[in-house]
Design a binder for these strands. Structure first.
Lengths: 335, 335
DNA sequence: CTGAAAGCGCTTACAG
DNA sequence: CTGAAAGCGCTTACAG
């Protein structure tokens, strides 16, 4: 194993000088820097992470707490994770993966043993039970989602309330008077997952304002559940002409079922999806959609965590404005 | 921050005794152990990871190198990752996530800076370009997948050759004389991804042996690509009565398309899927399938990595036998 | 612009 | 059965 002493010897300087060349924390003569850099690459030196962490109390590791359920949208989680890891690397950090079911003890362990400098937490609930622990960790925490009372914790998410509103506005503008929201699994609502409730609220408020009849239909991610859900929609809303789908897992099956039932999109019924862009494009009918910007959220979360680490900065709640892209699955009502 | 010295003081022993209580590397009187344990939980002590790593040259971290492509099956990757993290925790290890696009330098960095004790590498290609680097790391490496020449690297995977064979055997036994394999995206074959080629080989060999006419049709993960692919299948194999689908992303769309074309499963055409169990069960028709045991592979990989860390054990190539479950999407040919 | 040295919090021979 | 002490490989005041 190559140590800083080896590099120092090879370059004819002291170990501290090598360290300063690496950190840039003091000025080094051009000549010395060059000799050190040369020895470093010559020897293939990489600072020992444990020693560095011990001496500096910085690990250069971000802990990412992910849910590993299957009722959540898996591709969205993956996109988020990928963006987080990629962005973290641009700050010279690595990502440690923790699962939600490690619970409060796991969070305490990671913080107390100084395994990570900061935490990014996905799948936040409205009355998030982990909030007290997270606050007690004395480490920067970035929540993906917005709990009822974030306090001094940083949050970032899509503005789901605005997204819910935008979905109704779009359909109302097209003349639809009766719409249905096909939402996430009942389990997601039961858990009080932050985004589900916020979307629904925006959806309902705007429906009232725009005098659009609106119903909400949670749907479990299975073919049978979807069929039952659609039956329910058409029974309760015989005049429905617009569907807002906030449930990525059943997008494909939904389009098949509509087709099987002889409903053409958008002629007979408009469909607006809330999902990642690529998913909206990959369906049998290209879907008008409000994007779930998983990748942006991932890199933003890292950026915010890094900022809090560096400047000790202020907590903030950052909500990304929804972006709606028309792709032809929505059209005027009653044509 | 609570240190081992704090615990020692509170328990009235030396720091080394606390360390030995934690590691169990020497016998401690029952009384001392109890006092120490009590102080530990009293103070909420967790050993500093960096200090421990520095002193012991063990990080208790496993690095997991994952592909972050979208042409790979995302749920399978997630299941694998989840199982890896969960299993690692049972060995008191954490998981560091690396992306494949960090490349050889990333692998070298992780090994040289002693961030992780061992590596688990997913998405291995037949002529895997990372093999030389991986061998040079002097750390246990477990590959998910089997390269042409694994050498002294440990490998674990489903026996895809046997799986390909089993798929044909199942259909041939049911009397099918002409079958088509709808495989992974052409990009997957082009890349030489290990499992795709192995499955195809088993499929072809057994088709020849059983005198079954067989064709192979790679399919990109989009609705349009699927339609074109099916057109191709029926053009080249007008007498086809069995479909083997080794491409999870297009399972749902495939069933919709068959339905739209008036082909009933399994009356008109049998469908056998290669995918995780829950996916086979979630389709509009419950699918007879050969399971992709993502979770088992994840925990096996961790187990094998831990064994190599502890006993320095032998390298091995471990192939799990395929398991076929009948669910009614396959039936006798020509009824 | 650079070096010598203390110290980060553990583990583990060495000693008794 | 237990303790004192060296040492792991860095960073960072302290000094010049």
């Amino acid at each position: 194993m190559v140590t800083i002493a080896d590099v120092a010897r090879a370059a004819g300087v002291s170990p501290s000088t090598v360290s300063y060349v690496l950190s840039g924390r003091r000025s080094i003569s051009e000549d010395t820097r060059r000799r050190v850099q040369h020895s470093i690459s010559e020897l293939g030196y990489h600072p020992n992470a444990g020693a560095r962490a011990l001496a500096s109390s910085r690990t250069n590791v971000l802990a990412l707490v992910v849910p590993l359920r299957t009722d959540l949208n898996v591709p969205v989680v993956m996109q988020f994770v990928a963006a987080t890891v990629t962005e973290a690397r641009t700050y010279d950090h690595d990502v440690l993966l923790l699962t939600k079911n490690e619970g409060p003890d796991g969070l305490r362990r990671v913080a107390a043993s100084a395994i990570a400098d900061a935490l990014i937490v996905m799948d936040v609930e409205t009355s998030e039970p982990r909030l007290p622990v997270l606050r007690s960790l004395h480490r920067p925490v970035v929540l993906i989602g917005v709990p009822a009372d974030p306090g001094d914790l940083t949050c970032v998410d899509l503005d789901f309330t605005a997204a819910g509103a935008a979905s109704v506005t779009h359909l109302a503008d097209l003349g639809h008077r009766e719409v249905a929201l096909i939402g996430p699994s009942p389990a997601v609502y039961k858990r009080g997952t932050s985004y589900a409730g916020r979307f629904l609220r925006g959806f309902r408020q705007t429906a009232t304002k725009r005098k659009v009849r609106a119903g909400s239909f949670p749907c479990a991610p299975s073919y049978d559940a979807l069929r039952a859900c659609l039956d329910d929609v058409f029974a309760k809303h015989p005049g429905v002409t617009g569907l807002v789908v906030h449930n990525e897992a059943i997008l494909g099956p939904l389009l098949s079922e509509l087709n099987r039932r002889g409903k053409q999109v958008p002629r007979d019924i408009s469909v607006l999806a809330v999902c990642p862009e690529d998913m909206a494009e990959a369906q049998s009918v290209q879907l008008t959609s409000i994007a779930i910007p998983a990748a942006e959220l991932g890199s933003l979360a890292v950026e915010m965590a890094m900022r809090r680490l560096d400047d000790g900065g202020q907590a903030e709640v950052r909500l990304l404005s929804p972006r709606l892209t028309e792709r032809g699955s929505t059209g005027p009502a009653g044509t």
